[in-house]
């Protein structure tokens, strides 16, 4: 988890929270717009993260404790 900023999980729950507050109704207009833009920023970030579909290589711990690549297709 090199990325310092918020984890995907937290961004998603923040997004859900904003939707819930906006839907609760009594948010004044300018506040709603501010929250809306914040939400759309989170959406973009979440989408970004889901798009990075680059397939992470699977690892296997060898005897000496180091990680080696593990090709699951070769499993007998």
């Amino acid at each position: 988890m090199a990325k310092s900023e918020k984890k995907f999980e937290d961004k998603l729950s923040d997004l859900e929270e904003i939707v819930a507050t906006l839907e609760s109704g009594d948010v004044p207009l300018d506040e709603s717009i501010k929250k809306y833009t914040e939400a759309m920023k989170l959406v973009k970030e979440c989408d970004e993260e889901l798009k990075t579909v680059e397939d992470k290589v699977n690892k296997i711990v060898s005897e000496d404790g180091n990680l080696k690549d593990f090709d699951v297709s070769e499993v007998k």
Partner: peptide, 22 residues
């Protein structure tokens, strides 16, 4: 077992890293 686990993970969320402890 190991094949099912890894392939299922990869299918559902490809950017998840897996580490197998044989």
């Amino acid at each position: 077992a190991v094949r099912d686990i890894i392939t299922t993970i990869k299918r559902r969320f490809p950017s998840t890293e897996t580490i197998l402890f044989p």
